[in-house]
């Protein structure tokens, strides 16, 4: 059964220096508060995994938490580039960032393989692109039945996956709905999981399109209302598009960024 923990305790216990960490959420339900807690606890040398490293990974990278990034699309959706990500790749600031780059289909299938207990996934993908030239984790494979050449990618098995959801009950059963992306697969692929939720309720009322993660498949649950801001939580909040636009200017300059992290992350008041 999942343990109910505070965000600070959950991160302290489950996210360790050098870990492979996946924070997932496809525009919706991005676990920003947990990412900020990882920055506050000054985790280092993380391999960060995420299909769409956007503003939260820009913050983790700029704060020096990451050594390596495994991803398929790194940008600020609808706004432009990630300046901290670019600065790390182009100028090794604040530390060098190693990249392992995939397509969305490849990353999604890597999580599926991890969740399924398989060593790899197979798909029609990457063929003819330059992506396989830069990682050994994209390889051709022959179908044993038809002889057709397909593509294999290894399973993703994060040490810890962190996601945000609408709510959980006291036994740690987690319920999410709306765009649920690849979160179920990312949680089931990981050794450990930390799930932040808007609220903890006595009973989970069914919702159309819901995904339920049983408490016995989850390591820890922390109540963090608003924990997805500036992303959103359907039924609880709307996306703060203004913040995503504002991030472009905040993140462009190293000093402005560092000052923002100091004021809004390190010195932020964190409810227990």
């Amino acid at each position: 059964m999942a343990k109910l923990v505070s965000l600070a305790d959950g991160v302290a216990e489950l996210v360790r220096d050098g870990d492979t960490v996946a924070l997932e959420g496809f525009t919706h339900l991005i676990p920003f508060a947990a990412g900020h807690e990882i920055i506050r606890q000054r985790r280092r040398d993380l391999t960060l995994v995420r299909m769409t490293p956007d503003v939260i990974y820009d913050q983790l990278i700029g704060a020096g938490c990451a050594r390596r990034l495994v991803f398929s699309w790194g940008g600020n959706p609808g706004v432009g580039s990630l300046h901290r990500f670019r600065d790390a790749v182009q100028n090794s600031w604040p530390v060098p960032l190693e990249l392992e780059e995939h397509s969305h289909a490849g990353m999604a299938n890597r999580y599926v393989a991890g969740a399924s207990g398989l060593p790899f996934a197979v798909l029609r993908g990457y063929t003819g692109t330059d992506l396989p030239r830069h990682t050994t984790n994209i390889r051709p494979i022959e179908c044993p039945f038809t002889g057709e050449t397909l593509t294999a990618v290894p399973a993703l098995r994060p040490d810890v996956t962190v996601v945000h959801a609408q709510r959980a009950d006291r036994a740690g059963n987690v319920q999410m709905w709306g765009i649920t992306g690849v979160q179920k697969e990312a949680v089931l692929a990981a050794q450990r999981s930390l799930i932040t939720v808007e609220e903890i309720v006595d009973e989970l009322e069914p919702v159309p399109g819901q995904v339920v993660l049983p408490g016995w498949a989850v390591t820890a649950v922390a109540r963090v209302p608003g924990g997805s801001h500036p992303s959103y939580t359907q039924g609880y909040s709307v996306r703060d598009n203004e913040f995503y636009r504002a991030w472009d200017a905040i993140s462009r300059d190293r000093d402005t960024f560092t000052d923002w992290i100091a004021r809004h992350v390190h010195e932020a008041e964190v409810p227990a």
């Binding site: 999580y111 798909l123 992306g181 697969e185 995904v211 959103y232």
Partner: peptide, 29 residues
């Protein structure tokens, strides 16, 4: 117009909302 591909207005008005592995494996591939 959504600002991102995961805006709430897309899920609210969709015929179906499926997982990301499903959209690539069952629908695109």
């Amino acid at each position: 117009l959504p600002l991102s591909i995961g805006d709430g207005v897309l899920a609210d008005t969709a015929d179906a909302v499926v997982s990301v592995p499903e959209v690539f494996n069952y629908w695109l591939q």
